[in-house]
Nucleic acid binder design. Structure first.
Lengths: 116, 116
DNA sequence: ATTAAACATCGATGCCTGTCAATGTTTATG
DNA sequence: CATAAACATTGACAGGCATCGATGTTTAAT
């Protein structure tokens, strides 16, 4: 179910006019819907929030599994969706995989919705 | 599949702290995800956009079915989802059902995402 | 080299959801 | 009243997706 070929959030924000001035194009609607879909899940919203709220604004999978009350494989899956969608980035140090917010990614999506 | 018991978007915006300051609560994550899910569909994004961009900022189902290239029942379904989620409101004049944007609804969701 | 820990990936499963055709409902009109 | 137009609702179906257990992979430590 890997989220595929997403337009970078920044480009998405740059290319389309305010949504309510003229009808959004089919392709832009599809891109934006993919970006929103990646965020439209309780577990993933909590993950983004938990990562951002965590010490040093980064967290490894083991920090997130217990509070989320989901299996490790499920958490890994959600993190992958968020990375593919451009909301999170990951880095490896030793055995640990650290995740952090991509700066401005949330604002980009928000900007697309707020411009009425 | 009716989107059920949604917290009004305005209240939702008022009740929860910026998503990155402290982890969002489970219930708030569920509410926000329902609001986002309602928007995370190409057809529904186009509907919102088409309604807002339409003359007098309102449109009836017959205005929307052809451009969307979806069946009338499918369009009705999507409109219901958007109304239930608080993005659109409908009014009846004669045989026609007119839909318009709920003012500020998009901004409310955007505000929830932008507060990083 | 073994073992263990931290994740990722895979396969399976059950629910969710977008779509349509068919039908029901309401309103206007002849 | 009968008919037609505009929508809503229903039932069915297929594809999508969240979830899990099991297994694979990489790294560190003994």
């Amino acid at each position: 179910m890997p989220v595929a070929e997403l337009i970078p959030l920044r480009d998405l924000a740059a290319c389309c006019a305010p949504i309510t001035r003229e009808p959004v194009s089919v392709t832009n609607a599809e891109s934006l819907s993919r970006s929103l879909k990646a965020l439209a899940d309780p577990a993933r919203l909590r993950l983004v929030s938990m990562v951002a709220a965590h010490e040093d604004a980064e967290a490894c999978v083991c920090d997130l599994t217990d509070p989320l009350e989901l299996s490790q494989s499920t958490v890994s899956h959600h993190l992958k969706v968020l990375v593919d969608a451009g909301y999170l980035m990951s880095s490896k140090r030793g055995t640990w995989h650290y995740y952090r917010l991509v700066p401005g990614s949330l604002d980009s999506v928000a900007a697309l919705l707020a411009t009425v």
